[in-house]
């Protein structure tokens, strides 16, 4: 059962793993694009990821959501992954890392 520091470590590992998922249009990772709003882990390794897409209704949204779920699930210590697609707040270009 991971303690707080182990959970923070697990979240960081998931964040790093998500860097291999790219936005197909920009070619940058979903993390650098600012599309990952929140990553949370509970005591047993269940992950909750809150994400968005650059445009509401983006045709890639289903693929991005599934890719993020699969990518996070591949990290050792992650028991299950729930991905929530949200547009609150809507994404804007200032959310990208420079």
């Amino acid at each position: 059962m991971p303690d707080t520091s182990e959970r923070a470590n697990l979240i960081e590992q998931v964040r790093q793993q998500l860097s291999m998922v790219i936005d197909p249009e920009m070619g940058r990772s979903v993390v650098d694009m600012g599309l990952i709003y929140r990553i949370e882990a509970d005591r047993v390794g269940d992950m909750h990821i809150s994400m968005t897409t650059t445009t509401k209704g983006c045709p890639a949204s289903t693929f991005l959501k599934e890719a993020i779920r699969a990518c996070a699930a591949s990290v050792a210590g992650v028991k299950s992954v729930e991905v929530e697609l949200t547009y609150d707040p809507p994404w804007n270009p200032s959310m990208m890392t420079p």
Binding site: V21, E25, A60, T62, A67, I68
Partner: peptide, 20 residues
């Protein structure tokens, strides 16, 4: 764009993919 979604969308996150 549609070709990318059709062929690379299903493998996104599992393998290296090109940009559109």
């Amino acid at each position: 764009f549609m070709t990318w979604l059709e062929f690379y969308g299903p493998v996104l996150g599992r393998t290296a993919v090109p940009r559109v």
